[in-house]
Nucleic acid binder design. Sequence first.
DNA 1: AAACTTTTCAACCGCTCAGCC
DNA 2: AGGCTGAGCGGTTGAAAAGTT
Length: 305
Amino acid sequence: MSHTSNESEDGSRMIQKDQAESPSTDEGNSVVSFLGGGVLKKGPWTSAEDAILVDYVKKHGEGNWNAVQKHSGLSRCGKSCRLRWANHLRPNLKKGAFTPEEEQLIIELHAKMGNKWAKMAAHLPGRTDNEIKNYWNTRIKRCQRAGLPLYPPNICFQSLNENQTQNDIEFSVGDKRNNEHLQPSCFDIPDVIFDNLNTNQGLSYMSPFPDILVSSMLNQGLGSQDFVFTPPTSHRLKQLRGSENLFPSVHCNATCGLPAFEQFSSSEKIHRPLGVGFPYDPDPGRKNLAPPADLVSGSHAHPNG
DNA sequence: AAACTTTTCAACCGCTCAGCC
DNA sequence: AGGCTGAGCGGTTGAAAAGTT
């Protein structure tokens, strides 16, 4: 891929997401690949290409993406056209940062569905699977760094409850891929060690394998076992942005409802996933990153904590 | 101010699925 | 039934922006 000097007259690439219309460029500086004798362009779209695609869809409608190249002269593969349309050009796309409500919904949906971005996007009008996926990946990193749980406890329990009723339905209705998460036979217990948790203490769980559904884990009865938070990565923690809230709209639930992290903090059992550098330095130097000590679920995981 | 690090996000890739022949 | 094709999905990459030292 070549996102070389992507700046254009419209300065598109420099625009923040919440302002950006598209990152299209007017310069054709993209990689060109030769496929079957044809020339297919890669890389950032130019506004001219956008216009061609929009025009094409207006005339012919969505779908049949491979025909775009033939009929419009656009030197892009069908896949690329579909993606561009879906993620940037189609009408009613919401631009800008996710609202707290949307973030909350994403967390809930992920707890139920796992990495089913397209399905999650269906619940968020105007949002794309790509956006949601990017958001979630960012969230994972942040949570890991901050040692915070990926899911607030209320989500865990909500997911558990809903799944208990949904399992019956879904197994019979059968989205095969979805059910994989729920099938005991397909479920590999991740390399997570649970540490001193009582189900009645509530859950604040962060799997090092974000694909694993909280609900699945709970359904497996792991909730009654010990667990441990994945400790923050060993490298230096960076600041989270001040406005960031890892549990949008659920502070109350996430904090008030949290089973008082200090309950865990005295945990004797400390597990250290392989490859993580210890002793872990929580980075005393970090400033506004640090959530209150009693909120940092991961804090119990570091040896000195 | 410069160098370095981290984050963001658009776009690509490989894979799977569904429909058609 | 098997092969082909198009569409869609999820994972990953990498350039640029933003932040930090």
